[in-house]
């Protein structure tokens, strides 16, 4: 639970829940930062291999850190500013119907 710049005057932390567990966040922190600071490194599983994912690029580019925030699915945890009372939950696991990948679909470009 380490935080950079401990010496600062801290505002009262926000209290969020992650799948029911309380997580605190400092004003200005993203929900992703709050989770990582709480030792939680993954909150999504991939569709194909079911692998765990959390923050990767940290700046809104990679979409690996998708999370459900107050019933909005697919939000980038690295960008969403934490707010008091926010409810975070793991992204629904979305395996393909069959083994792993199933059909690929045909979305071309």
């Amino acid at each position: 639970m380490s935080h950079a710049g401990r010496e600062r005057t801290e505002a009262a932390p926000y209290r969020l829940t992650f799948d029911g567990t309380t997580v605190t966040a400092r004003p200005g922190q993203s929900v992703g930062a709050a989770l990582v600071a709480a030792g939680i490194v993954s909150w999504r599983t991939t569709r194909r291999a079911g692998g765990p994912r959390g923050l990767f690029c940290g700046i809104g580019v990679c979409f690996d850190c998708l999370i459900t925030v107050d019933d909005h699915p697919g939000q980038r945890a690295c960008l969403v500013p934490a707010r008091d009372g926010m409810r975070l939950s793991r992204e629904e696991t979305r395996p393909s119907a069959e083994d792993g990948r199933g059909g690929e679909g045909s979305d071309g470009d």
Binding site: R47, R94, S96, A97, E98, R101, G102, G103, E104, G105, S106, D107
Partner: peptide, 9 residues
Amino acid sequence: EGTGGGTVL
């Protein structure tokens, strides 16, 4: 329509 990859076209 849906695709096996999960996207909808």
